[in-house]
Design a protein around this nucleic acid. Sequence first.
DNA 1: GCTCGATGTGTTATCGATATCATACACGAA
DNA 2: TTCGTGTATGATATCGATAACACATCGAGC
Lengths: 347, 347
Amino acid sequence: MVSIARTIRIQDVAKRANVSVATITRVVNGSGYVSARTRQVVQQAIDDLGYVPNRMASALKGKSTGVIGTINPSLDINPYFVQLSAALDRSVREYGFRILSMVVNREQSDEVGLIHELVSRMVDAIFFIGSTAVPEALIQSIVDRGIPVVMLERPLDIRDVDRVTVNAWEGSAMAAQKFLAFGHTNIGYVGVRLRHQVEEDRYEGFRQTLLRNGVPLEARNTVLVEEYELTHGYNAMRQLLGQNGRPTAVFLSSDILAAGALQCLYDAHLRVPDDVSLIGYDDTMASTMSPPISSVALPIQEMAATTVDLFLERKREGRKAGKVVRIEPHLVDRDTVKDLRATVERT
Amino acid sequence: MVSIARTIRIQDVAKRANVSVATITRVVNGSGYVSARTRQVVQQAIDDLGYVPNRMASALKGKSTGVIGTINPSLDINPYFVQLSAALDRSVREYGFRILSMVVNREQSDEVGLIHELVSRMVDAIFFIGSTAVPEALIQSIVDRGIPVVMLERPLDIRDVDRVTVNAWEGSAMAAQKFLAFGHTNIGYVGVRLRHQVEEDRYEGFRQTLLRNGVPLEARNTVLVEEYELTHGYNAMRQLLGQNGRPTAVFLSSDILAAGALQCLYDAHLRVPDDVSLIGYDDTMASTMSPPISSVALPIQEMAATTVDLFLERKREGRKAGKVVRIEPHLVDRDTVKDLRATVERT
DNA sequence: GCTCGATGTGTTATCGATATCATACACGAA
DNA sequence: TTCGTGTATGATATCGATAACACATCGAGC
């Protein structure tokens, strides 16, 4: 016989165990005093009935929902956000939280509505990921509601809000240094139009590092595309190859662009690093390419862990002021930069 | 002055608008009769106070939570599941639902606990994605609780449970046919150990199609690896290349394996399709490879939409019996199969 | 023997939204 | 005029878990 779907309430368990509902809560939540004997009887009743406490009622009464809302760009834009989301998910799970992800499309999306929904679902915190278009006043209103907010890799600087940022400048600088160290002077840069601080930093870190070492980044070697898209990487590389005196090394400010560039090189029968040296950025796809290319890696799991830590710390200590943590990237070297130095000097 | 975080309740709005709470609900939910005048006053009060209805209370009183739980393997195992998850998310959002994703690791993970959590959160449905290890009895208990269940690409066949399956047999068959049509007879197969129906189908579809056309799949040309991992694809390809009379065409039962294989070919200075023809499966990474390779594509968005449809239909019509929908894959041809036919005959 | 604190259990108001039930007015038909 | 029906609004029990409060028992210490 199919049991008709009637939810089993704490009342039912109480009746079965011949105790009051208060005792059931105590057993379930491990609070207050319960004798070993009673505890066992109650547990038996719970198991028999297949009782599962109703979290809605619990949350309504004041206990936390254990849900953290995230506002992030669509995941199919860039594998970087996929990995970041997965890392965040792992991190919050460690502390018993779940993620409720809200996607903001570039084009439309009613951010106010999304935030309101998170509020209505009583999330314990809201994480903003990447550069989505959420007006500052709206974020302020969340803070005023007493909901902890953490910004992950977002330009905005709001009073009393915690932030995790990445040292993008330094990341690009590492790539530049690698090229310089191996004797390259004719160097290309492929990035995305400088619309946010992040793009700006990646560009400047690269340009300035070259410049400081006496290698100005030539305009004809600089390609800024509209989006982080494969075909843009392809076209950018074609543009760089098209000129006489093509660069011997090219830095791409995202792996997705590098993947496109690699396809272009394949079509041109050019090999990496024999014919062209390559370094990517974010290290999301680099290891799966043919060949696997060097890439500036962001410690994604660390970023996620830091984000959660900031939230937990604020919750625990009731901290009021905003805190900013800057994460340092590192270069994952897969030997895709050719050594152009005539003689290797011993230092 | 910072407003102290005190939640605004329906009561507060009622007081402000000088009406009863009942009227507020009516305005918010658009139910029952409300005069235009009152509606306006109430709306004003809502806006003034920044009132957001508490969904916990609402759910507790019997309204749906609008949340659908999913049980899926970890997303970093395979980009296929990432895309599937994103597609599902889009599909449920169209109908105002949200996804709460529960990850089951291969190694451990307390599936009972995960399901119980979904129940405690009063999800409107549960979708099972891929071949995770959830015992049949547990799923039956969900069904008994009256929660709609849809299985997406899962082998299990449970009474009264809706399912969406993929015709994996046919997918592989398409790849085989392509090879045959272009005159290949020395053909390789790289797959994963046949632990589930899916792996079995992919293998058999390929093998049988070749056989029916008089081309037996040789044992030395068949490599079954342990997992869907890049390095396994690399090693498998190396094994195939190592023998004299290496295959002229290789089918890989997942793009991630193909990506590894491609790296191997790169190292061996072999080009696709000039030296080796290649077809992948699932079309998740194929388009980003160098070169982009042909791959058997699964209509992921359609699978997601179908899953949601089955749930909605059951909900709407109160359907009781289980329904199975089979999805057909198709080959995305990127010209990575070389034409070996000496003369092209006109048909 | 009495008091006090530790232990163990029960009773019930409460969280916030909903829907049922009750009430009341207005207008047209009988 | 009266009745019925459509429109409009209010009062309140209810969903299920929690915790404050009350009460009761027991043993140790005086």
